[in-house]
Simulated scan of single mutants.
Amino acid sequence: MSDSEVVIPEDEQDEAEEMVEVEIVDNDDANPEDAPEEIAPGLPERTTFLDYLLSPIVRLQIGSGAEATTLHAHQALLTRSPYLASACDQFSETTAIRQIDLPNDDLEATSSVLEYLYRNDYFPALSSNSAMEYDSTIPSPDNEGIALLRHARVYTLAERLGLPQLAQLARKKIHLTQSTAKCEIAYARFVYKETSPDDNEMRKPVASFWATRSHALRHEAEQEFRRMCLEFPQFAFDVLSLVLDAQERRSQTSTSGGPGTVRKRQRMSQI
């Protein structure tokens, strides 16, 4: 026997279609947490070197008067320095000539800063973790401290411009630079003149160098060292403090007894 055919009245068909439509609308109002995650979320924007090159050109006026020199750099690179970024904030879209005046800065040091902003290093660049490129302009021996002073000026300028990574790089190059006693005196004079009294990163190694090299003071740079002490009493005090600390440690080591013993206080003579 054949199955009987089921016929749905037209009015019931219309009601069924409406129910389906309602269900579809309800699905659109589902909980957003149940929605599938995006397969390819948007990637963060990356600043490219081209973005730097497309930024406006800024003039840097180094020095003052007839000896002033003008350098040029892209604004987007200069803004890596908080100090220079603040100066660039003064420019508007209608500024015809974008210029930053640096009347008291060293030209060569400023050039090294710009070189670092473009290529993350400056000449002489690091050839390895413990060596730098050869610089034919540095005499041998370098008694005037040309190489050391170059990196010292970059360090102090990097500190002022708010570039700590550049300051760290310059400090590393200082430690890699070959020097003489007279060269070290020239470097010490610059450090104690240009750095703040609480800058232990630069001052302490200088004082420690001279505190542990008395032979160099007597035979290579005695007069220069004497003038340095008279010009910067803080330098003389720092060196003397380190010498006395070393002598005290040696004295304690030589007079201390074995474990569990106490060093006796020297008895004063009685009248």
Rank of each mutant, 00 (worst) to 15 (best):
D3Q: 14
S4C: 06
S4G: 09
E5S: 09
E10A: 13
D14M: 09
E18L: 15
M19N: 09
V20I: 14
V20H: 08
V20D: 13
V22E: 13
V22T: 13
D28H: 10
D29F: 14
A30V: 05
E38K: 14
G42I: 11
L43C: 02
E45K: 13
E45R: 11
L50E: 15
Y52I: 05
S55K: 00
I57K: 11
L60C: 04
I62P: 02
G65R: 03
A66I: 10
E67T: 02
E67A: 10
A68F: 02
L71P: 08
H72T: 00
H72K: 13
H74E: 07
L77S: 00
L78N: 00
P82S: 04
Y83M: 14
A85R: 13
T94A: 01
I97V: 14
Q99A: 09
I100L: 05
D101T: 04
L102E: 05
L102R: 05
N104H: 11
D105N: 07
E108T: 14
E108N: 06
T110I: 12
S112E: 09
L114C: 01
Y116W: 15
Y116I: 10
Y116S: 06
R119F: 06
N120T: 14
F123L: 00
P124G: 04
S127Y: 00
S128Y: 05
S130E: 11
M132G: 07
Y134K: 13
Y134C: 07
P141A: 05
N143P: 01
E144F: 10
E144V: 04
Y155M: 02
Y155P: 03
A158T: 05
E159N: 12
Q165P: 04
A170E: 03
R171N: 06
K172N: 05
I174W: 05
H175N: 11
H175K: 14
L176W: 06
T177E: 08
T177A: 09
T180A: 07
C183A: 10
E184Q: 14
E184N: 10
Y187F: 15
A188Q: 03
F190S: 01
K193F: 08
P197T: 02
D198K: 12
D199S: 10
M202H: 06
K204D: 13
V206L: 03
F209Q: 04
W210K: 06
A211V: 06
R213N: 04
S214N: 05
H215D: 15
H215Q: 15
A216I: 02
A216S: 04
E222P: 01
F225G: 06
M228S: 10
M228H: 03
C229Y: 08
L230E: 04
P233E: 04
Q234S: 15
Q234D: 15
F235K: 00
F235V: 01
D238C: 00
S241H: 15
S241D: 13
A246L: 03
A246G: 11
R249Y: 03
R249I: 01
S251I: 00
S254R: 11
T255E: 10
G258H: 12
R267N: 01
S269C: 08
Q270T: 11
Q270W: 12
